[in-house]
Design a protein around this nucleic acid. Structure first.
Length: 294
DNA sequence: GGTAGACCTGGACGC
DNA sequence: GCGTCCAGGTCTACC
């Protein structure tokens, strides 16, 4: 079955898919025909569906592997809306970005939306998996989580969902460590899953929280395994752009762009984008780092 | 508040 | 094949 969902313009499915590396992390994958984004999702009823999202006039088309009841269609529509940020408005950013050559293409490419997982729980876990490791290891750890603990699609056992907090909360830390190679992150993920599964922590409520960004950041920093970089990355996912996820790559790029390759720290990265105010995270994210002769 | 060292895995490298 | 080194953020203890 198919759903057609409108998006606030300008919108580019290609820009969302390639906004960061999330599309390489299961259960995301590129559609086999390279037409769009595929995902294996679990609905509230427990039904597992495989969806393929492709571009449509003024929005996206969502093809589901299963026929869905009306309530399930509404849930799926809400899920895709969140994942792609269909209604997000970047007019303010485009206005200021148009005056900066390094960001001049942002509006034309409809950049700004950042691909999200269906749940904030999944995005927090994935973000923790990006810390203190190489990208290839992040992909491997995430694949292990999905492969070991996700629910399979009824028609294709190879396609699995991202495990729920309940599923991960029921796994012993040492089992998690041994089967997924999460290393020292295992107790962090286990504790997060336990807190969410027990109801002690309502992560999903943060998706639409009206808390000021500093308070939201404080909440995220309260999660074990989430430090400055991870919190800033999650704030970007939550649509708060006044923080920069400073990692080793950011230090290298800022060093090359403004300091002639000399070593720089967090302060220099922050200073480089300070003038962008509420948009500084997005300005950093979309900056064209292509070397130019100065 | 700032800093040093430990945490853990896997890839690269030398022998 | 084995041992060593290194990269990658966060946590904790200490000052």
């Amino acid at each position: 079955m198919e759903l057609v969902l409108p998006a606030r313009q300008p919108f580019s499915l290609h820009s969302v898919i390639h906004s960061h590396g999330w599309m390489q992390l299961a259960p995301f994958r590129l559609d086999e025909d390279n037409r769009g984004l595929a995902h294996t999702a679990r609905l509230g009823t427990g039904k597992v569906v495989d969806i393929i999202i492709t571009a449509a006039p003024d929005g996206v088309s969502v093809q589901s592997s299963e026929s869905l009841k009306e309530s399930e269609q509404e849930e799926l529509a809400g899920m895709v809306d969140w994942m792609l940020g269909l209604d997000q408005d970047f007019a303010g950013f485009y206005g200021v970005a148009s005056r900066e050559p390094r960001l001049a293409q942002a509006a034309a490419r409809a950049q700004g939306r950042i691909l999200r997982s269906p749940t904030l729980f999944e995005d927090v876990v994935k973000t923790i998996l990006t810390t203190n490791t190489l990208w290839a290891a992040t992909i491997r750890m995430n694949n292990n989580l999905v492969e070991q603990f996700g629910d399979p699609l009824s028609t294709d056992q190879q396609r699995k969902t991202f495990p729920t907090p309940q599923q991960l909360a029921s796994v012993e830390v040492e089992t998690l460590r041994a089967q997924t190679r999460l290393g020292y992150r295992s107790p962090y993920i286990a504790e997060l899953a336990r807190r969410v599964a027990s109801g002690e922590l309502d992560l999903e409520a943060l998706k639409h929280s009206d808390l000021p960004t500093p308070e939201l950041r404080k909440r995220l920093l309260g999660l074990k395994g989430v430090g400055d970089y991870a919190a800033a990355n999650l704030l970007m996912i939550l649509g708060r752009y006044d923080a920069i996820p400073v990692d080793s790559w950011a230090l290298k790029m800022v060093s090359n762009e403004w300091y002639g390759g000399a070593p720089v720290g967090r302060a220099e990265v922050e200073a480089a984008f300070e003038g962008w105010g509420e948009w500084k995270g997005l300005a950093y994210w979309l900056w064209d780092w292509t070397p130019v002769n100065r």
